[in-house]
Write a protein that binds this DNA or RNA. Structure first.
Length: 327
DNA sequence: AATCCCGGCAACCGCGCGCGA
DNA sequence: TTCGCGCGCGGTTGCCGGGAT
């Protein structure tokens, strides 16, 4: 049995709402409330689907909505909650008065994701990208590493290109990479790389990333041999120039986002400089969760509440959970 | 001045959940 | 317990405006 459509598809208008339609809907809701969305368009004299009316009301017409730009505090709240909740936009929006899930989702997709990527942080896991590469390399047994690392490279290629094509960072990378190649004779030549030649630069960048990754893998294989395998926070030592570049430079970029100073909200990850070093120093352990965590209570629309402890969740994500934010 | 490209945002779509009969 | 309906959620699409070429 097929699902019954929410409204008759014929005689239903789609697309942008006109001011007249907005007025009709607002007036009707002001008088009669929002019970039974299916009937509202009919009674309000609108040739719209009830669902469309509901969306228009909840995302745009509701009088308690904020329409301006997101403040720094709001952005920080979104990032922090997203690190805990993942893409649960409605729950995140519930913590931001006047913002809708659609607002939050759009803002995340258009701004915040790029902002995090620009800081060298994977927006899905909220971990440093270099950390993830290292984690992949250290979690797997050596025979598997090259294939999966290659796959990971594909995942992060866009973010890396985004980082590397930023003017200043690109220049630093070029310098650093040149230094690296001078001591590693199996590295690809970069003598022909010119920043003005953006396309060539991007193409070479992929080779550089591959090279950096292969070095990370080599290093992790060493760690694997010496540590007996398994991924722990303690073997996150970026010995590669690539990885060090990738994060330290970004987080120490004085022109960068103000989040450099306080991405973490937990009480053991306080505001201030330090960036990567501070985060590396932060123990990734459930021991932190017991009594030092900063807690928030998230209340959903149906009234249920969930308490989150940021010290636990910001960094305590096992590799199994990378694509499945907890909760 | 015209065209192209891209980012931002509003709106749509399909699915899942909760509730009541 | 089951079924159907209504609603809410998250992913995706498409339009529009502004900047770049």
């Amino acid at each position: 049995m097929g699902r019954i459509p929410c409204c008759e598809k014929d005689n239903v208008k789609k697309g942008q709402w006109t001011p007249e339609e907005d007025h009709k809907l607002s007036s009707y809701i002001a008088q009669h409330g929002t019970r039974n969305w299916r009937l509202i368009p009919k009674h309000a004299g609108l040739q719209r689907c009830g669902k469309s009316c509901r969306l228009r009301w909840t995302n745009y017409l509701r009088p308690d909505l904020k329409h301006g730009q997101f403040s720094e505090a709001e952005e920080q709240t979104i990032v922090t909650l997203h690190s805990v909740l993942g893409n649960r936009w409605s729950v995140i929006a519930a913590q931001l008065p006047g913002r809708t899930d659609n607002d939050v989702k759009n803002h995340w997709n258009t701004k915040l994701k790029k902002k995090l990527s620009g800081m060298g942080i994977d927006p899905v896991t909220h971990k440093p990208i270099s950390h993830l590469i290292s984690e992949i390399a250290t979690t797997l047994s050596p025979p598997q590493v090259p294939h999966l690392a290659e796959a990971a490279l594909g995942c992060f290629k866009d973010e890396m290109l985004h980082l590397l094509t930023k003017k200043r960072i690109g220049f630093q990378f070029h310098q650093q990479f040149t230094n690296m190649t001078s001591t590693h004779n199996n590295a690809p030549s970069t003598s022909h790389v010119k920043h003005e030649e953006n396309n060539n630069y991007k193409d070479n960048t992929i080779e550089k990333i591959k090279y950096g990754l292969s070095r990370a893998i080599k290093e992790s294989e060493k760690n694997w041999e010496t540590s007996g395998g398994g991924a722990t926070s303690s073997n996150f030592h970026d010995n590669t120039g690539f990885s060090n570049y990738n994060f330290a430079n970004l987080l120490n970029d004085e022109e960068g986002s103000p989040w450099n100073q306080s991405l973490c909200s937990g009480s053991t990850c306080t505001a201030g400089g330090g960036g990567l070093q501070q985060q590396q120093n932060k123990k990734i352990s459930n021991e932190n969760c017991e009594d030092s965590g900063k807690e928030i209570v998230v209340t959903t629309r149906n009234g249920s509440t969930t308490m989150f402890n940021f010290d636990c969740v910001l960094w305590d994500i096992s590799s199994d959970d990378l694509m499945n934010p907890m909760v």
